[in-house]
Design a protein around this nucleic acid. Sequence first.
DNA 1: GTCTATACGAAGATAGAC
DNA 2: GTCTATCTTCGTATAGAC
Lengths: 194, 194
Amino acid sequence: MSPRRSDSRDRMLVGASELLREYGAGATSIDRVLARTGAPRGSVYHHFPGGRAQLIEEAVTRSGDLMAKRIDAVMAAEDPLEAVDSFFAVWRERLVESGYRIGCPVAAVAAETNDEAPQLARSAAAAFARWQETLAAHFCRHGLPEARGTRLASLVIAALEGAVIMCRAERTTAPLDAAATELRELLTHAFRDR
Amino acid sequence: MSPRRSDSRDRMLVGASELLREYGAGATSIDRVLARTGAPRGSVYHHFPGGRAQLIEEAVTRSGDLMAKRIDAVMAAEDPLEAVDSFFAVWRERLVESGYRIGCPVAAVAAETNDEAPQLARSAAAAFARWQETLAAHFCRHGLPEARGTRLASLVIAALEGAVIMCRAERTTAPLDAAATELRELLTHAFRDR
DNA sequence: GTCTATACGAAGATAGAC
DNA sequence: GTCTATCTTCGTATAGAC
């Protein structure tokens, strides 16, 4: 019996996610995933008949799901302002600890999208949409009108993704810190006026 | 005498910028730049002794400079709120007209940064920094305290870049529109309280 | 599920002629 | 400044054995 749902398959997905966030989609080759994970060459197309595209697509979906769960957990536990702050804090830590090597795997794929692999764009879009909806639902639960909650959730994600990219290039947390400060201001007003 | 500062050199830089914004850094190969521009193969390393990395680096710098000039021009002509709105409007148009194919060349490079080519990250960082400083200067000129202007400028750029990435993946302008609306709200407060 | 071998193409870079 | 090889490396994908 196979090690339930295959060990090397999962390892490849994890490895692909890591490569995506560290080096981007273009650099996430099958070879590098194998080198990093030690997964067996011979079973790549057994687990991923769709080849590289399928591997990356599934890695993106997996990363997106994990992040969505984290968003849900944090938003359920804390008040919305604290929760948003803690997202930014987590990313700040992640960036510094990795020497600014780690970014967002979903954004990496979305930024390199081309027409030849529309599935990749779709999996990234699905992740973004799910994060946005999760965040919006919590905002609305705390009293924001639906349209406002939707817009603010979208902005938070966009600002976070954009700031992470800037931080990596500039090797500073300044963009992330600026975004966190100003978004807190905006959210404070939004929830006060509700 | 050479066509002042070489014609094919410039064409290659333009072509590289286009490929960057449409397909990302990984897909911006010398071959594709040549195919797109019709520039002569034999002179690549004559114009760009540093090879592909130098070509992309200069393309990013060039794109960054162009955008900085546009920011400066718009901010000088309009009041800051209108100006920010018009940036988002320009991007919205660009996305729709291109069928969501066109993104930001600077962000594309920044998102695919790896340790092997630190010059690329640096040129992207320089572009981001220049945009941010330009925007901040205008914000402060209109009355914002320096720290606030700096933060807001940074947020505007981060939100714009993040939203563009999301729009391309989702094939909607919704993220861009949401960001524009909420940033206008935030900026309105900031300039009113000044 | 995993192994080895291999076909095939794309890409970066260099050499030397013109 | 430009041209034509050519070397080399890497990456995808497939075939067929175990």
